[in-house]
Amino acid sequence: MDISIDFLEKKSRWVRRQIVEMIFNAKKGHIGGALSCTDILVSLFYGGIIRYDAKNPSWPERDRFIMSKGHSGIALYAILADLGFFPLSELATFCKNGSMLGGHPDRNIPGIEADSGSLGQGLGIGAGLSLCAKLDSRKYKTVVLLGDGECYEGSVWEAAMFASHHQLDNLVAVIDRNQQCVTDFTEDCVRLEPLIDKWSAFGWEVTSIDGHSYKDILHALNDSRVDGREKPLAIVAHTTKGKGISFMERQLRWHHGVPTMDELETARKELDVDLCEIVVEEGKK
């Protein structure tokens, strides 16, 4: 699939704009981690990696995407709405009374495969789905997005061991390596490095990429579709927390900060995309 990088870049700016607006509107939300994984999510859903049917979210042959770092679900909400899983107007209700869109995703939302928000559980679920596909000789793949801070959870490594033992080559874990957890930088808190060696030692094929380079992301993810691999694939995606909004980048206070009106205006200028603009690929307008 030939994807225009300009299209992905603009789509990411549109998703980031939605994230900032939703959080400003709700006066709450995990902003930094949503911004760090936006380019990964855009690549997955607009880059032809995840096969889906927005009109039939339970299409049996769809690829399964598990948002294990559930606190960044807001980025996925914007994408699912844009893809037609549910109306765009729902985004304005984020965390408002009676909304279906809460701070963490659940299966009542069309397009969400599994509830998340409690860290360290998505990879095991993904391993179960991948094993199920193998047992039934089905072709779908499963992609799980984890936070790097999430890798402190022991259950991540229980699942990592299980997946490699069962040779789940239809399973991909993408680790949003933004170097930060809630209140600290990971390497100052409890060292995660050498993270690549850890995944490798657990029997995974590992690749390290720039998590904001569409070329890198698509290359790594397309590689995951090559048959004949015997190991699950871990993609350590180096990212910047708060990416795309200069004053939020790498700042601890933006794990779940809410922008002021002035900060919102600055963010809008930097993102330089109209919220109402329907971002489509060149030639498809």
Partner: peptide, 25 residues
């Protein structure tokens, strides 16, 4: 083929069971 020993890892056992169930088992 229907018997899986996940090892002494109860947390993962529940999550794997979840994935298998979502897949139709």
């Amino acid at each position: 083929r229907q018997y899986i020993n996940v090892g002494v890892a109860e947390q993962n056992m529940i999550s794997v069971a979840t994935g298998l169930t979502l897949g139709g088992k």
